[in-house]
Write a protein that binds this DNA or RNA. Structure first.
Length: 496
RNA sequence: GGCCCCGUCGUCUAACGGUUAGGACGCAAGGUUUUCAACCUUGUAACGCGGGUUCGACUCCCGCCGGGGCUGCCA
């Protein structure tokens, strides 16, 4: 089954766009088909410089590599496949010829109305309380089109280069029913439908014409798109019929919503996928999150990689109602994905971040060991450098960190506690300096002295790391080694 | 306004006539070698309303209410 993702280069890749792209990608992959990317740049005014490249980059980041169409390659943006071009602004002649075919077959007509005339018509209809304002409100009367003018008049205007559009001639009172793969049968009456513009006066097609022509020519088996297109479905089905083509299958995916349940918008939420990438979310976590918004596997599994999604996804388990884009679960998934990495993968992922801050850091078994200590306790990879800081430089330890009311440690108790730590730890020899031995010796000594665990462990951990939170005291002491551990306790004593 | 779509915990969702309405996030409490996390345990919380159909409705039908989308020479 060939599927496509067809963004307009008007800005960043939207999270909702990524979701429809993901669903399309999954359907293509699980049916052994191709996933194409086509660019819908038919609105010259809204096109944004650089948006195309940006969207492709983000798609690549997410791991959704197109098989055909517009693809990001080393050299830049390439078009691959035998059904191109895949950028609509490069297919203008094609759309025109198909629009003319419609004209010849009586499914469309030329109209010369100006923007102002159309505006006036709408105002008039609104004032008259017309239920469904449309171009042909009064049997296409009062409008300047090929349906009400003589052929000669039309020819004269065309010869005089007067701007015109080509409109679809909507059949009267026809019931159009179609089976959507997510919603089941939906039906509409053409009575409510306008004579949609198909070819604009600037020679560009509207979405409607371009969609029908391209998805037919590019042999798309199923069109997966946002629910906002559902009301346009009958127009598209009718166009396929007018061309004598078999329509593809359609799946209208429910919308992503703001917290107030309106259509997800930039004003109310973060909607650019790029923002999430910048915040440090892993593509796996983000994709996992997006997939679970409106789709469920029917099992209690929550963690899904892209290959697992290809395996488990199906359109009939896609929700019909919109889903609030609430990212509270995303952070949890991000943490899960950090934990999902092997120690080596994790170490390699954080290495550049750490060397950036501590140039002498390098990948070796020791680094892996240290990385392992923090892998279970961070959510974002970018937290790694600060959590490993004390392995690369001596911390500056303040008394108010060493003392801790919650652990019942006052500043006046500190000298005694630090001496206790020093004396006890000195009895542990270098060759038995392990987490287990340290724990055994220190806790038993503390018990003899009448210290509570927190009263000795908190100052030890704080003296070693200088941080309000970090891996545990024994883990850090073992990783730091005997000399450094004792030296830092000494330093803490000096600074009292 | 008209047309179309939708309606289960705060959020994402399971259930496809018979369940104590399940899971996840969040939140709360407890646990773990101190703290923040992570992790484990327990808890918290939902079928929009009213009619039918049926021995029996979250599930089927109708109405209402509520929400959303569309109603462009934007996609």
């Amino acid at each position: 089954m060939r599927t496509r993702f067809a963004p307009s280069p008007t800005g960043f890749l939207h999270v909702g766009g990524l979701r429809t792209a993901l669903f399309s990608y999954l359907v293509a992959k699980q049916t052994g088909g191709e996933f194409l990317v086509r660019i819908e740049d038919t609105d010259q005014e809204r096109s944004v410089e650089g948006a195309l490249k940006n969207i492709l980059h983000t798609l690549h980041w997410a791991g959704l590599e197109p098989d055909e169409g517009v693809i990001l390659r080393k050299g830049g943006i390439a078009q691959e496949g035998g059904k191109g071009p895949y950028i609509q602004s490069q297919r203008l002649e094609l759309y025109r010829s198909y629009a003319e075919k419609l004209l010849a077959d009586g499914h469309a007509y030329i109209a010369f109305d100006t923007k102002e005339e159309i505006d006036r018509m709408r105002t008039r209809q609104a004032q008259a309380g017309v239920a469904s304002p449309k171009y042909d409100a009064s049997v296409r009367m009062n409008m300047r089109n090929a349906l009400t003018m003589s052929a000669q008049e039309v020819q004269e205007k065309l010869a005089g280069a007067e701007p015109y559009v080509i409109r679809m001639k909507m059949p009267a009172e026809t019931q159009v029913s179609f089976e959507d793969d997510i919603r089941g049968v939906v039906s509409f009456n053409t009575r409510e439908l306008d004579d949609q513009v198909l070819l604009k006066s600037d020679g560009f097609p509207t979405y409607h014409l371009a969609h029908v022509v391209d998805d037919h020519l590019m042999d798309i088996g199923i069109v997966i798109r946002g629910e906002e297109w559902l009301p346009s479905l009958p127009k598209h089905v009718l166009l396929f019929e007018a061309f004598g083509w078999r329509p593809p299958r359609y799946a209208h995916v429910p919308l992503l919503l703001n917290t107030d349940r309106s259509k997800l918008s930039k004003r109310q939420s973060s909607v650019a996928v790029e923002e999430f990438r910048e915040k440090g979310y892993m593509p796996e976590a983000f994709l996992n999150f997006i997939a679970l918004l409106g789709w469920n596997p029917g099992t209690e599994q929550e963690i899904f990689s892209l290959p697992m999604l290809i395996e488990a996804f199906s359109l009939d388990r896609v929700q019909k109602g919109g889903a609030v884009f609430d990212t509270e679960k995303l952070d949890w998934l991000q943490g899960q994905w950090v934990r999902q990495l092997s120690t080596e993968e994790f170490s390699r992922a954080i290495l550049p971040l750490v060397t950036n801050q501590f140039p002498k850091a390098e990948y070796d078994p020791l680094f892996e060991q240290r990385a392992h200590l923090i892998q279970e306790r961070i959510t974002f990879l970018k937290e790694a450098p600060s959590m490993l800081q004390y392995f690369y430089e001596d911390p500056i330890v303040k008394n108010d960190l060493l003392a801790n009311a919650k652990q019942k440690i006052t500043e006046t108790m500190l000298p005694d506690i630090l001496i206790f730590l020093q004396e006890t730890l000195e009895t542990v020899l270098a060759d038995e300096w392990t987490q287990d031995v340290l724990k055994e010796k220190l806790l038993s000594a503390a018990k003899l002295k009448g210290y509570k665990h927190g009263q000795v462990l908190w100052p030890l951990r704080a003296a070693l790391t200088g941080l309000p939170f970090s891996p545990g005291a024994f883990e850090v002491a073992a990783a730091l080694g005997r000399d450094t551990t004792l030296a830092r306790i000494e330093m803490a004593m000096q600074s009292l």
